[in-house]
Measured scan of single mutants.
Amino acid sequence: VTTYKLVINGKTLKGETTTKAVDAETAEKAFKQYANDNGVDAVWTYDDATKTFTVTEMV
C-alpha cells in the first residue's frame, strides 16, 4: 500500500489530500470521485516519481 497525493488547482476548490491505495490506478479512481463530488472538472496529470496527481481546472 502506497500513499498518493492529490493537488487541486480549482476555480472554487484548492488544496491537497492524500489516499492510501494498492496502485496508482486505484488512487486515481478515488481522487476522480472526490473531485467529481466537489464539482471539479479539470485536466489531470500524474507524476510517478512523487506519487502525486495534480488536477487543474480550466478557467
Rank of each mutant, 00 (worst) to 15 (best):
T26L: 04
A24N: 04
T2A: 09
D48S: 09
D48E: 12
K51Y: 07
E57Y: 13
A21R: 02
E28C: 15
T17Q: 09
K51T: 02
E28N: 04
K20E: 13
Y46T: 00
T3S: 05
A42T: 07
I8Y: 11
Q33T: 08
K11N: 10
E16H: 09
I8A: 03
Y4E: 01
L13H: 12
K20Q: 13
K29H: 07
N38E: 07
Y4D: 01
A21Q: 04
K29P: 01
K20F: 12
T52C: 02
K14V: 10
L6K: 01
G39L: 15
A27N: 00
T52D: 00
E28I: 08
V1R: 08
L6E: 01
G10D: 04
A24F: 14
G15F: 15
T45C: 07
A21E: 03
T19E: 03
V43E: 08
K51H: 09
A21C: 06
G39F: 15
K20Y: 11
V43C: 10
K14I: 10
N38L: 15
D23Y: 03
L13I: 12
V22P: 13
N36W: 15
N9V: 13
M58F: 12
T50M: 05
K51G: 02
F31W: 02
T52Q: 03
N36E: 13
G39N: 09
W44V: 02
M58H: 10
N9D: 08
A24W: 14
V43S: 07
A30W: 15
V43Q: 09
T50V: 04
G10I: 15
W44T: 01
V7K: 05
T18K: 05
D41T: 09
D47H: 04
D23R: 03
A24I: 09
L6Y: 01
D23M: 03
D41M: 11
V55L: 12
E25H: 09
V55Y: 06
D47M: 02
Y4Q: 01
K32L: 08
G39I: 14
L13K: 06
T50R: 05
V1H: 09
V55M: 12
V1E: 12
K11Q: 12
G39V: 13
T18D: 04
Y34E: 02
T19D: 02
A21I: 02
T18A: 05
Q33V: 09
T45F: 09
V55C: 13
I8C: 13
T2F: 13
D48A: 12
G39Y: 12
N36C: 12
T50N: 06
T54P: 00
G15H: 14
T18V: 08
V55R: 03
A30C: 13
A49Y: 08
G39Q: 07
V22Y: 10
Y34K: 03
I8S: 03
T17M: 14
T3G: 02
A49L: 11
A27K: 00
A30Y: 15
T54W: 11
T54Q: 04
E16S: 10
T19Q: 05
T54Y: 13
V1K: 11
I8E: 01
K11Y: 09
D37A: 13
G39P: 04
T12K: 09
F53V: 01
Q33G: 05
V7W: 03
G15A: 14
E28M: 14
A21G: 03
T45K: 07
V43L: 09
G15C: 15
T54V: 05
I8V: 06
D47N: 08
K29A: 10
Y4A: 01
D41R: 09
A21Y: 04
A42C: 12
V40G: 05
M58A: 10
A49T: 11
N9Y: 13
T17W: 15
T26A: 12
Q33C: 07
T3Q: 07
G15V: 15
D41G: 07
K11L: 14
A27R: 01
A42W: 15
V1Q: 11
A30P: 01
K20W: 11
T2R: 09
D47W: 02
D23Q: 02
Y34D: 02
T2I: 13
V1F: 13
A21T: 03
K32S: 03
T50S: 08
E28Y: 15
F53K: 00
K5Y: 14
N9R: 11
M58P: 11
Y4F: 10
T12G: 11
G15T: 14
T2H: 14
A21L: 02
F53L: 02
G10V: 15
K5P: 02
N38D: 06
T12D: 09
E16F: 14
N9H: 11
A42H: 08
T12S: 10
T3D: 05
V7L: 06
M58T: 11
A24P: 09
K14T: 09
D41Y: 12
N9F: 13
D48W: 05
D47C: 08
K20M: 13
D23I: 02
G10C: 15
G15M: 14
A49R: 09
T50Y: 03
M58D: 11
D41P: 09
K5C: 07
Y46K: 00
N9A: 07
K20H: 09
N36Q: 14
K51P: 00
T45Q: 08
T12M: 09
F31S: 00
K51A: 04
G10Q: 06
T56F: 08
A24K: 15
K51C: 03
A30Q: 11
A49G: 07
V1S: 08
D23H: 03
D23L: 03
K20I: 13
E57K: 07
G15P: 05
A35M: 15
E28Q: 10
A49S: 10
D37V: 13
G10S: 13
F31H: 00
T56E: 07
E16P: 06
A24V: 13
E57I: 10
K29N: 05
V1C: 14
A42R: 05
V1W: 14
E16Q: 09
K32Y: 05
A24R: 14
E28P: 00
V40S: 04
Y34L: 07
W44P: 01
E57M: 10
Y34N: 02
V7T: 03
A49P: 05
K29E: 06
T2C: 12
A21S: 04
D37Q: 13
T45N: 07
M58V: 12
L6P: 01
D41K: 10
K29C: 06
A24H: 09
A35W: 15
T12V: 11
G15Y: 15
G39W: 14
T54R: 04
V59T: 11
A35E: 02
G10P: 03
N38M: 15
D47L: 02
T54I: 06
K29V: 08
K51I: 01
V40Q: 05
T2G: 06
Y34P: 00
K51F: 08
D47Q: 03
T52S: 02
E25I: 10
T12E: 09
K14L: 10
V59Q: 11
T50E: 05
V1L: 15
T3R: 04
G10Y: 15
V7N: 03
T26C: 05
A30S: 07
L6W: 03
D47G: 01
V55A: 15
A42F: 15
T19V: 14
A27G: 00
G15Q: 13
V40A: 06
T52E: 02
T17E: 05
K5H: 11
T17R: 13
V59H: 10
K5D: 02
T2Q: 11
M58W: 11
E25T: 10
A27M: 02
M58I: 13
T45Y: 08
D37F: 15
E25Q: 12
V43F: 10
V43H: 09
D41L: 11
N38F: 15
T50F: 03
T18W: 14
A30K: 11
A27H: 00
M58N: 10
V40K: 05
Y34W: 14
V22Q: 08
A21P: 01
T19I: 15
T3F: 06
M58L: 13
K32T: 05
T2W: 11
N36I: 15
A27I: 02
E28T: 03
T52K: 02
F53D: 00
T45H: 10
D41Q: 09
V1I: 12
T54M: 06
T17P: 03
L13P: 04
V22I: 12
A30I: 15
D47T: 03
I8H: 03
V55G: 04
V7A: 03
V40T: 06
D23C: 04
W44C: 02
Q33L: 10
L6H: 01
K51Q: 06
T54C: 06
A49N: 09
K32G: 02
G39H: 08
D37Y: 13
A49F: 10
